Simulated scan of single mutants.
Amino acid sequence: MKDIRKSAVVILLAFVVMTVLAACQGKQDDSPAPTSTASTPASSSDSEVIKEGTIKKDDNVILKELSFVYMDHNIALSDIVDDDKLEGMLGKAEEKKSHTYSANDGTNMDPLIGFTENQYNFPGLVIKTINASEDKKFFIFSIEITSSKFATVRNIKVGDSVEKLKEAYPEGYLIGNGAPEEEDVFRYEPVNYVDFMNFHIKDAKIESIRISTLLY
């Protein structure tokens, strides 16, 4: 009789344990799936300007805007370039000038002491580069366009009218009194007031385009 009672107790305990386990499993199945607390990378905004070639132009709205197009090439501020790369895109320069800033060079550019600036003169185009302080690479900091062969990414060229310019760059503004017979500058500053594009206006037409960044 005792053996029968022991068996009944064991069976009852096993039943209770199985019931409890089933109930716990049901609660786990009904509970909402855990949400990940890992933060997702923030998408790039127009105000994030990555300098000195650390990000591709295609992923950087600002640098892509501050560029010009020639044949199949897009050339922008902060592009890392050398003689061979520029020659491959634009042909051989008519003239190249080079200057290394020093304390006694008469330029009064103390923040640039030790930096070397190169100037490449092409027909209707002048490109200036300077080397970054941490390495020997040269990046573009100034582009001066005086020929209609070179267009901005919004297809604005030397010789275009002020009306067409304003339509293409509604974010820009005139510096000057805006009189058609006088010279003015139409300025386009995408975000940071450091990188900019100036359109020199004369007789209501674009005479030259300057794409530049402040070095200090």
Results as ranks from 00 to 15, higher is better:
residue 38 A to P: 00
residue 38 A to C: 01
residue 38 A to Q: 07
residue 42 A to R: 08
residue 42 A to G: 03
residue 43 S to H: 02
residue 43 S to M: 05
residue 44 S to F: 00
residue 44 S to M: 12
residue 44 S to C: 10
residue 51 K to E: 11
residue 55 I to E: 12
residue 56 K to Y: 04
residue 58 D to H: 04
residue 58 D to S: 14
residue 59 D to T: 07
residue 59 D to R: 10
residue 60 N to R: 01
residue 61 V to P: 01
residue 62 I to M: 05
residue 63 L to C: 00
residue 63 L to D: 01
residue 65 E to V: 03
residue 65 E to Y: 09
residue 65 E to N: 02
residue 65 E to W: 09
residue 66 L to F: 00
residue 66 L to A: 00
residue 66 L to C: 02
residue 67 S to T: 12
residue 69 V to W: 00
residue 73 H to Q: 14
residue 75 I to R: 00
residue 75 I to Q: 01
residue 76 A to T: 10
residue 76 A to V: 05
residue 76 A to I: 03
residue 78 S to V: 00
residue 79 D to P: 00
residue 82 D to P: 06
residue 82 D to Y: 04
residue 82 D to S: 11
residue 83 D to V: 02
residue 85 K to W: 01
residue 87 E to Q: 11
residue 88 G to S: 11
residue 89 M to F: 07
residue 89 M to Q: 07
residue 90 L to F: 15
residue 91 G to L: 05
residue 94 E to N: 14
residue 96 K to V: 15
residue 96 K to E: 15
residue 97 K to W: 07
residue 98 S to H: 03
residue 103 A to F: 02
residue 104 N to W: 11
residue 107 T to E: 13
residue 109 M to R: 14
residue 110 D to T: 15
residue 111 P to L: 08
residue 113 I to S: 03
residue 115 F to Y: 06
residue 116 T to M: 09
residue 119 Q to R: 15
residue 120 Y to I: 08
residue 122 F to Q: 01
residue 125 L to Y: 06
residue 125 L to H: 07
residue 125 L to N: 10
residue 126 V to Y: 03
residue 127 I to R: 05
residue 127 I to K: 04
residue 127 I to H: 06
residue 128 K to T: 12
residue 130 I to L: 11
residue 130 I to T: 13
residue 131 N to C: 07
residue 133 S to L: 14
residue 133 S to H: 13
residue 134 E to R: 11
residue 134 E to D: 15
residue 135 D to P: 05
residue 136 K to E: 11
residue 136 K to T: 11
residue 138 F to I: 06
residue 139 F to W: 15
residue 139 F to H: 15
residue 140 I to E: 07
residue 140 I to C: 04
residue 142 S to D: 15
residue 145 I to F: 06
residue 145 I to K: 07
residue 148 S to Y: 01
residue 151 A to I: 13
residue 152 T to P: 01
residue 152 T to H: 05
residue 153 V to H: 02
residue 153 V to P: 05
residue 153 V to G: 00
residue 153 V to I: 12
residue 155 N to E: 13
residue 156 I to N: 08
residue 157 K to L: 06
residue 157 K to T: 03
residue 157 K to N: 05
residue 158 V to A: 06
residue 158 V to R: 09
residue 158 V to I: 12
residue 159 G to E: 12
residue 162 V to H: 07
residue 162 V to N: 12
residue 162 V to T: 15
residue 163 E to Y: 00
residue 164 K to H: 12
residue 165 L to I: 09
residue 166 K to I: 08
residue 168 A to G: 05
residue 171 E to Y: 01
residue 172 G to D: 03
residue 174 L to T: 15
residue 174 L to R: 06
residue 176 G to A: 14
residue 176 G to Y: 06
